[in-house]
Amino acid sequence: MSIHKNGIRDNMKLTKLIVLFPIPFLLAILVSSVTADPTCSGTGCNGLNPNSTGCDASATTLYQTTNNGAKLELRKSTVCSTYWAKTTNVSGVNKYANATLKYYYYSYSPAPIPNYQYVYSSQRYGTDGAYMNACGQVSNSIIDSMIYSPCVP
């Protein structure tokens, strides 16, 4: 009799266990969906868009400068350890713009962009930010190549 009772109890425990087993799994899914992790890491982020990869969610501006109607920024993602350049047109009139992460990537506007609009480059992974320079310009003509001046830092 007692053997039979123990058997029933064991079966109930097993049923509970089967029911409870997926709970940690579901909790883990919930936690991971709330925290939107970047979709890349390390050198796997090289050449990718900091916004579409989610790296820009933790972005800060390390350096900035204003020069001839352009505001240049060197941006860093603290989570992805990546860097990119950003150029904002602050000239007051429509201009072509270029943002270059020196030696690596550049983006440019194919048409003049209005005041306060900005263009940013692809990102590059770096462990300590050494040799990362943001260069950029705004101009009356298209700048469809990498530029090397002015830059920050």
């Binding site: 087993f21 997926p22 709970i23 940690p24 799994f25 579901l26 909790l27 883990a28 899914i29 936690v31 991971s32 992790d37």
Partner: peptide
């Protein structure tokens, strides 16, 4: 179960 869940969700 927990470990598998965490691994699967990255």
């Amino acid at each position: 179960g927990m470990a598998t869940g965490l691994v699967f969700t990255g």
